Amino acid sequence: MPTSVAIDDYLKTIYHHTEWQDDPITPSQLAAELGLAPSTVTEMVHKLAAQHLVSHRPYGPVSLTAAGRLRAASIIRRHRLIETWLVREFGYAWDEVHDEAEVLEHTISDRLLEGISARLGHPRFDPHGDAIPDAAGAVVRSPFVILAAAPVGHVGRVLRVSDRDPALLRALEAAGLDVGHAVTVTAGGVSIDGGAAVTLPPGAADAVWLSA
């Protein structure tokens, strides 16, 4: 049987794929995200389906069942609470926390996790703006638009910045763009908190989500 960590990695990846858009993930996309051979992913998907954690038809997309979504939300809750804890309590930068959280999410006890949540005031979002599921797996998320799809003149608050590329996170921080800031979309970039327009680094338009 696959290990618990391997199962969690699959479920997290499927969950992440539909967190900020609606199209379900395909087995080939899942293989690309995990960096695994398609045959390996196909075998694992069959095992997850046998455990009633995912639903899948041959050549069709992969979706989480209710049980799979609850388990995915649980491990994502751990990951994002740990990231928030590392930033607030230990002075980590937002581009430094992902790898640490990947390790710690599998090791700390439920008691410690809930203690961390209480100490932090039960935060709803992590340092990147991703929603932290509650103990029942529920999340609260505002209507959003990705920066790449926002028209010139759109005014919104930065809801989320993808944590996929640490170098991009550092570049955005250097440009003054962070979660919570108000931005106005301009022809060549954005105006942050009413200031002069700034040109954002390559890739930023596909990594920043604004309130709709």
Rank of each mutant, 00 (worst) to 15 (best):
S109V: 11
V45G: 02
A67Q: 12
G153P: 04
L169A: 09
R57G: 11
V183R: 03
H154G: 06
S109T: 15
I7T: 13
G153A: 11
E96M: 14
T26A: 12
A67C: 02
M1E: 07
V45S: 02
A73D: 09
A174Y: 00
V208D: 04
D9Y: 01
R170I: 00
V198L: 02
V140W: 00
S55N: 04
E83Q: 12
A148G: 11
M1H: 05
H46S: 15
R170T: 08
V158Y: 07
A73P: 00
P143F: 13
A150N: 04
T107Q: 13
V5M: 13
A138P: 00
V152D: 04
I14T: 04
R160H: 15
D206F: 09
P127L: 09
A182I: 04
E89S: 13
A149H: 10
H128T: 10
K47N: 03
V5I: 15
I146E: 08
T3Q: 12
E105Y: 05
A50M: 08
G156Y: 14
V139E: 12
R160W: 15
G189W: 03
S162A: 12
L169Y: 05
R170D: 02
D99F: 06
P202G: 14
S55K: 05
H98T: 13
H79G: 03
M1C: 01
A49T: 13
T13E: 11
V5E: 15
E43N: 15
P151Q: 09
E100N: 01
L112T: 13
P38E: 14
R170K: 14
A6F: 01
G115Y: 09
V103E: 08
A171T: 12
A187L: 10
H122S: 06
S4K: 11
T186H: 09
D8W: 10
A118E: 14
D8G: 05
L30H: 01
P61Q: 14
I14W: 01
D99K: 07
E105P: 00
L112K: 04
H17L: 00
R57K: 15
E105T: 02
H17D: 03
S39N: 08
T42P: 00
T186D: 12
L70W: 06
L81V: 04
L210F: 05
G129F: 04
L53G: 07
P24Q: 06
A50S: 14
I75F: 08
P202K: 09
D165R: 13
V179W: 08
R170L: 04
T65H: 14
A73S: 15
V45L: 07
H122R: 09
Y15H: 14
V208G: 03
T107N: 03
E114K: 12
Q51G: 09
T65F: 07
L36M: 06
I108T: 10
G115V: 08
A150V: 01
P143I: 13
D22K: 15
E89R: 11
A67W: 02
G189F: 01
R124D: 09
F144D: 11
S55V: 07
V185W: 00
A118F: 01
V161Y: 05
H98K: 13
L113D: 03
R141W: 02
A131L: 02
P151I: 13
G60F: 12
